[in-house]
Write a protein that binds this DNA or RNA. Structure first.
Lengths: 250, 250
DNA sequence: CAGTGGTCTAGACCACCGC
DNA sequence: CGGTGGTCTAGACCACTGG
């Protein structure tokens, strides 16, 4: 019995879904809607249990689902917090450059090109864009000190990232993901990388101060926001001999 | 039932560990000891709860831990089963060769060398071997049809894999992990891969029908059994330009 | 200290499976 | 149908965090 008073806030559960599943969905929507900012705490389990009219354990199962999704994080004795998303320089995990000693790890970033253009069919598909929609394409060089180490091509769907068109890239800082969040309200939540090897083209080689045809590691990334939409396509290239990637299998 | 009365079977919990943690450890030991064969069912949750003298929910939490570890698998309405370990061509789940479309089939395997030798210091360390202990080293070529695509060097601690010394490699089949399990009772449970880039040596190049110095992708794998011991070191090399590796980021 | 999440209990009923 | 895991309840106490 018990759904308590009468209408618990928008949880229609017995539709093929468990009650905690319904509560998880409801919480997910409230998180994505921005009701609780990333990094802030959601109400206590006991409060949620009461407001949804369920037992504590049920709300705990709902939260467990969202924790597994990476949307929430628990902290014993403190509370349950909205995840702050993928932080900084995750791309550098893949590359080991000798400039590893110094404390300041993130290499500097320089935008060398930016333009808007019509989305290609593949891009329309992954971004879910209508025919005729546009994308922003960025070319970017990352360097340790005076030494360039990575070149990147970044493609973003225009409707979402329009704020980037009008601002000065020199003000963007070294990391894109925090920029996405602050300027465009887009929080990168997870990504899929495909690693392969190729040879540098003339332009890329010049930017990296290597010869054309030099072996390079290529990381093609699709990045997703918290709702699972793909919101960024990125291709990163760097010296193959400086590349190393660690993965855990099951 | 039985053990109920007073002393639950060997669960010393209030020592920094939760009760379900203690039960999980106890179950882990019983699984690793072979009390229940891989693929078979463990006792029902209710039976375990009774025999350990705890509530159902507690045993469920213990089982959840082992499921997360990959040691157990639940099946609704049927039971909880001991995991059968990393199945067949797990190596190829994560990297593949573009020359092959749709081909989910494992490439054929040919052992081209096998010898026992003293373990090097690094190997003694990762395998936990005593000074003077030996290892088996295998050289292996994997091919699609008549076309070789991968060369592998596999190093195994001898005490565990002695059964492989006396048998004929032609009888081994294309996959090593099932062989380990059937001949040596070793079940590979998880692994760590390190991907990097190098150039082929003369011998490797000849086996792959490429020129020496040709760019190659290198995957160094450490594989672990269910108790977390490292039981295999493997280095796989193949044409860098046919290589592709997929990884999920958080 | 009060508030949070973490652990645990002893029940109940449901959904699924195989016979 | 009986047995399994899956969901849910309404309590209780513990361990950690912060003021």
């Amino acid at each position: 019995m018990a759904q308590a008073a009468s209408p618990p806030p928008a949880v229609r559960n017995p539709l093929g879904q468990s009650r905690y599943g319904g509560i998880a969905s409801a919480l997910r929507e409230r998180i994505l809607s921005g009701e609780w900012a990333p990094g802030s705490a959601i109400p206590a389990e006991s409060a949620l249990a009461q407001s949804y009219g369920v037992a504590l354990g049920t709300v705990r199962q709902a939260i467990a689902l969202l924790v597994e999704d990476g949307l929430l994080e628990r902290q014993q004795g403190k509370g349950t917090f909205v995840s702050a998303g993928l932080a900084g320089a995750s791309m550098l995990r893949f590359f080991r450059f000798r400039s590893r000693e110094a404390g300041a790890e993130a290499p500097a970033s320089r935008i060398v090109a930016r333009r808007a253009r019509p989305a290609e069919p593949v891009e329309r598909a992954v971004f879910g864009l209508a025919p005729g929609a546009q994308v922003i394409q960025l070319e970017r060089v990352r360097s340790f000190g005076t030494e360039p180490c990575l070149v990147e091509t970044v493609v973003l769907p225009l409707p979402l990232f329009g704020a980037l068109v009008d601002s000065d890239p020199d003000d963007w800082g070294d990391l894109l993901y925090p920029l996405y969040q602050q300027r465009c309200g887009v929080l990168i939540h997870q990504a899929e990388d495909i690693v392969s090897f190729a040879q540098l083209g003339a332009m890329q080689a010049r930017r990296l101060r290597l010869e054309a045809g030099h072996p390079c590691a290529v990381v093609r990334r699709r990045a997703f926001d918290r709702s699972g939409r793909c919101v960024e396509l990125r291709t990163t290239r760097g010296d193959a001999f400086a590349f190393e990637y660690t993965a855990h299998v099951r």
